[in-house]
């Protein structure tokens, strides 16, 4: 009599099941442990900067007044990047998913992936040596016509190594992240929804507004948040492009600084208290990104019904 595989006790694969579920849970826990270690370590190393005599901290007025200008600088750079990159990125994603000829869509998607793949240091040297000089006439025009707004106050930097240039370079770097993620989501829109809208006589834009965008809303937000996270923490592009200085309102003058660039430019020579300061700056950056992600998470959790796994 042959044994029946279905009734055999402890049938094949039970061990596999156990091993697989344990391994996957262990991997998940490892991630939690790693993150906890990162936060703990940054905090422990940063303590000296918080407790030090204010006069000994860079700037001589304590840690808060040291960190405040570069926090604002970081936020400004990331804000410029997101404001510029979000509409363009979503447009590109829509173009690839719904406007480009079907035959061209895949190659065009690859082209945009290539933009994502270009390393940040290459964007950095491109922004420094190619883009910044090109933008100077544009900045002069902005200063001449909109100079009454503090954002475009003069005198214009003649090298073009300004906050706005850094923001534009960051926008270029963030763009493919927003595009590739939202494109994936746009392509997942149920075909029946789109066809139903078209069959009711909707134009292409109405179809996108009625079926694609509602479906993709959570995905778009998470794409933008991921882009924001990268813009906030991006180091090399800012370190190479921005001619750093004190916090100033003008975006087209030399000045301002971001946390990540501050760390990268100073860490190699730092020791003692200076190192603690930089690590504390890293901790602040970490907390900012944490806050951004928590907000993103909260928004996405309100739209969970659009997730595919239901």
């Amino acid at each position: 009599m042959t044994t029946n595989a279905l009734t055999k006790p402890g049938g094949s694969g039970r061990t596999g099941d156990k091993v697989f579920s344990t391994a996957s849970m262990a991997a998940g826990i490892l991630i939690l442990v790693t993150l906890f270690a990162v936060a703990l370590f940054l905090f422990l190393q940063a303590i000296p900067a918080f407790t030090a005599d204010p006069a000994e901290v860079s700037g001589g007025k304590g840690f808060l007044s040291y960190i405040w200008p570069i926090v604002i600088g970081t936020v400004i750079a990331a804000a410029i990047a997101i404001v510029l990159a979000t509409p363009v990125g979503l447009g590109v994603a829509l173009f690839i998913s719904h406007y480009a000829p079907r035959r061209l869509a895949a190659p065009l998607g690859y082209v945009i992936d290539l933009l994502a793949a270009i390393p940040s240091v290459i964007y950095g040297i491109w922004g420094y040596l190619v883009l910044a000089p090109v933008l100077v006439p544009g900045y002069e025009w902005l200063n001449a016509n909109l100079g009454f707004i503090p954002l475009f106050g003069g005198p214009v930097s003649q090298t073009g190594k300004t906050m706005l240039t850094a923001g534009i370079v960051l926008a270029v770097m963030v763009l493919p992240i927003i595009t590739s993620l939202s494109r994936e989501i746009f392509l997942q829109t149920p075909g029946l929804h789109e066809e139903a809208a078209l069959a009711l006589g909707a134009t292409r834009w109405e179809m996108i507004r009625m079926s694609v965008l509602p479906f993709a809303r959570a995905g778009i937000i998470s794409a933008v948040m991921l882009g924001l996270g990268r813009a906030l923490g991006e180091t090399m592009a800012v370190a190479l492009v921005l001619s750093t200085g004190n916090l100033i309102p003008s975006l087209i003058k030399s000045g301002n600084q971001t946390i990540a660039a501050e760390i990268a430019l100073n860490f190699p020579e730092a020791f003692g208290l200076r190192m603690s300061e930089l690590i504390a700056a890293g901790l602040v950056l970490f907390i900012i990104t944490l806050a951004v992600n928590m907000v993103a998470r909260w928004i996405i959790s309100r739209h969970q019904e659009f997730s595919g796994a239901n």
């Binding site: 991630i31 990162v38 923490g233 991006e234 946390i259 860490f267 890293g282 970490f286 990104t289």
Partner: peptide, 16 residues
Amino acid sequence: FVDVMTGIPSIVAGLF
């Protein structure tokens, strides 16, 4: 926390 980790700036990961 994976979401949080996505936002870890590269330089902070290096420091860690």
